[in-house]
Simulated scan of single mutants.
Amino acid sequence: MPETAASAPNAEPFRASIMQIEPQWIDYNGHLNMAYYNVMFDRAIDQMWLQLGMGPAYMKERGGSSFTAECHVRYLREIHLGDPVQIFVWLLEADDKRIHTFEEMRHATEGWLSATSENMSLHMDMKARRVAPFPPDIQQRIAAVTEAHSAVPRPEGIGRSVAMPSRR
């Protein structure tokens, strides 16, 4: 997959490749262990980073990368061994150093929602190991995708926080 955006982004969430659950990821409860939801979400984000021009070649040639600063995962329905999974990514907002994304993990053939992940990623200068502005070409791609995704209805769950239900 190339590390550059060849055409204008679509007004739909990014669709990652269909993934399969690996047997060693199943825990003693018989479902996908919570840690591996993050592995799958991370793999999907890596695919989107490639489309934005921010994959391994970007790190090697230009010294930039991204780090996750914050992540909020909601587990909504169990995924089991043999379930094909597809992750959809919305690029919600960005500034010169940060990207706010929202991801949905869905059963790839039946379409039901298994989990969501909301993330704040930071652009890093890997030589200094500090947060740094995106280069102009990358910032331009991010802005184009953010604009395209703003035309798509927002999924339920953005901005949720962890709290006990209030008693009334």
Rank of each mutant, 00 (worst) to 15 (best):
M1T: 08
A151S: 12
V131I: 14
E147V: 03
M48W: 13
R141Y: 00
V162L: 15
L50W: 11
M126K: 03
M105D: 08
I26H: 05
Y28R: 11
L81E: 05
E70C: 00
A69S: 10
D83A: 12
E70I: 00
N119A: 11
G157W: 04
S166M: 09
T146L: 03
M126H: 03
S65P: 06
D83S: 12
A8Y: 07
R74F: 00
A144D: 10
M40R: 10
P155H: 04
A128E: 13
Y36P: 02
E12V: 10
D96W: 03
R160E: 13
Y75G: 06
G159F: 04
N10A: 13
P56E: 14
E3W: 06
L92W: 02
I26T: 02
H100V: 06
A148Q: 07
T146Q: 15
E156Y: 01
Q86G: 04
R141H: 10
R129T: 05
L91D: 00
P165I: 01
D42R: 07
V85L: 15
F88L: 15
R160A: 15
M54E: 02
Q51F: 00
L91A: 11
I142Y: 01
Q24T: 07
Q86L: 08
V145R: 15
I138P: 00
V73N: 07
M48S: 06
H149K: 12
R98Y: 06
N29Q: 13
L52Q: 02
V152E: 13
I26K: 05
F134N: 01
A132L: 05
E70H: 09
Y37S: 10
